[in-house]
Write a protein that binds this DNA or RNA. Structure first.
Lengths: 237, 237
DNA sequence: AAGTGGTCTAGACCACAGA
DNA sequence: CTGTGGTCTAGACCACTTT
């Protein structure tokens, strides 16, 4: 049993169990909590932390007095924070991007409020078409607080913006608030996404914040209704 | 300090803290974990359970070595399992329903598979227009395993179906899988929702299961794009 | 009766932030 | 350096399901 350093035990255990679960049929019983505790030489509380996560993700269900079982899962994801790049890889597709426009400009009232800066403060605006397996999936416009990202204009925006923010500026989006609505696409949007005008699309607005709750970016994404869906498991309590 | 019986301490503490938080400005510091532990006479682990939940909900953020703070929250909800009735009340609107149709029929292949019954098994189908403040918000078609709900045909379907399932049949939906897409409404849907044909709408398909992972209901809901949105906070890990 | 998950405790050590 | 949140432990009792 090789344990990877600097990773909390419950996270490692969670990943280990997730692998096991993939090889089991639905409703198969997992070892008991006390059993897992012995097997992996961790406390039962640590086992519970790992199982709690798997439960919230919808991968397992628990019955008091009976045991823990593999969920009859078709969806095993909770909605979590991931970039377009990561999202597409998870869906088994190859992501790419086409940069449409990029400039520095005054934030304006709306964006300024969202990002917690003055109207006149500078923001970087990046507009990209994002593709999966070379087919356009969505249109994405991101505003980033200018003071946080000096020199961003020179970066290669065909790769993951989140990756650039992390490696070049040590900015990591740890939390985000999202609002999802259904909209009909405009002529311009339709042309860029190669779909008919007024087609249905999913409009996602996200404000991404760092670990101290400071806004980093505000992004508006228009997803093709016929190419994208949102899947997740929810729970009572 | 009155403690309500039969409720786990961490749930009670969570609710108590949530009330406190509502009265505080963003970024205000919360008492330390050890402090809360003393104040409420619970272990630090119990305090952490409560704070963990508030953190996942997006109501607070934590900085190691510094403290716990009120989030600059505009959205403090995680996506959770709630009925239309509950959802609308949370949004400050008055929910109501109009029953369009209700019948018993063979499940068929698709619904049968979703509900884990044979094609020929009976399901109850309920179609309703759901309103908020007397304005139509969505069109909802629910299929329920017939064997689980004898006599449901006599029930008053203008009230919450989830409530009826719970009180009359002891069926509680504890987990659900959802798939959200954007669609253009058909002529019939448009008429029922009082919007133009081909308007954009949010299509939500949900399969609700009990605590043992047995499917109870399969529901398809068409939400007006101009009257409904999905709001939630997401986190890294 | 035996075994399971659900809750709770008191204490320990660590990594990190701030004065 | 002190205090904070992050992790982990060993043990206890409860509510519940199954035999």
């Amino acid at each position: 049993m090789t344990t990877i350093p600097s990773v909390p035990k419950h996270e490692w255990l969670r990943a280990t169990l997730m692998d096991d679960i993939r090889g089991l049929p639905p409703h198969a019983p997992l070892p008991t909590e006390r059993n897992l505790s012995d097997t992996y030489n961790v406390s039962r509380d640590t086992v519970r932390k790992a199982l709690d996560w798997l439960h919230t993700s919808g991968a397992i269900y628990r019955v008091q007095g009976a045991g823990t079982f593999v969920a009859g899962m078709t969806i095993t994801k909770t909605l979590s924070l991931s970039s377009f790049t990561r999202d597409m890889i998870d869906r088994g597709m190859e992501p790419s991007s086409k940069l449409l426009a990029m400039d520095r400009r005054a934030a304006g009232r709306v964006i300024g409020e969202q990002l917690g800066v003055a109207e006149s403060d500078e923001v970087v605006r990046v507009t990209r078409v994002r593709l999966a397996n070379a087919r356009p999936i969505c249109l994405e416009t991101t505003h980033i607080v200018g003071a946080l990202v000096p020199g961003l204009m020179d970066a290669d925006l065909t790769e993951s913006l989140y990756a650039i923010l992390d490696t070049r500026y040590s900015l990591r989006v740890m939390r985000a608030e999202q609002i999802v609505t259904a909209v009909a696409v405009s002529e311009i949007e339709a042309a860029l996404l190669a779909i008919p005008t007024h087609s249905a699309a999913m409009h996602v607005h996200r404000i991404g914040m760092d670990e101290r709750d400071s806004p980093i970016e505000s992004t508006t994404t228009i997803y093709r209704g016929d190419m994208y869906d949102l899947r997740f498991a929810v729970h009572r309590h």
